[in-house]
């Protein structure tokens, strides 16, 4: 089955992001296709490489990165949500005159159209939120 995943909550604050990760990983391991994982609302905070959790805790950001490297997963942060919450890649830094970037590898910032497209292209959209 072809799946799209939407993540609406930030890491550590909320279980949604853990559930989304475990669901996505399990689906990929079972041989399903995950067309895209789209991060919205505080979900965009899943994509900052500056996250530093305690050593005895899971690293949610790195977990996504590793999954994306293994399965060539498309991890997309909504641009409007990312701008509000200070998630910045090279293009955004240039456009908005920011002095730093913080996006993790394998993540990209793009528009809400990517969510709509994922919903259209996939057999199921699975939303993880509050």
């Amino acid at each position: 089955m072809k799946l799209a995943v939407q993540v609406n909550e930030g890491p550590y604050q909320h279980q949604a992001t853990d559930s989304a990760y475990h669901f996505t990983k399990a689906a990929l391991e079972k041989g399903h296709e995950v067309f895209r994982v789209f991060f919205y609302h505080d979900g965009v905070l899943n994509g900052t490489r500056l996250t530093t959790p305690p050593q005895d805790d899971r690293n949610i950001v790195n977990r996504w990165v590793e999954l994306a490297e293994k399965y060539d997963l498309d991890l997309v942060l909504c641009v409007a949500a990312a701008q509000r919450r200070g998630l910045v890649d090279d293009g955004e830094a240039q456009r908005n005159g920011k002095d730093a970037t913080n996006i993790a590898p394998k993540f990209r910032i793009s528009g809400l159209g990517q969510l709509i497209e994922a919903a259209i292209q996939s057999d199921r959209l699975v939303v993880f939120g509050d």
Binding site: Y40, H41, A80, A81, R84, L112, G113, I116, E117
Partner: peptide, 19 residues
């Protein structure tokens, strides 16, 4: 919370896809 407004943003952007 911002859910209502950001939901509305999806609806407005999504209109371009004619669903």
């Amino acid at each position: 919370t911002i859910y209502a407004w950001e939901s509305l943003e999806v609806v407005l952007i999504g209109a371009a896809f004619d669903q």
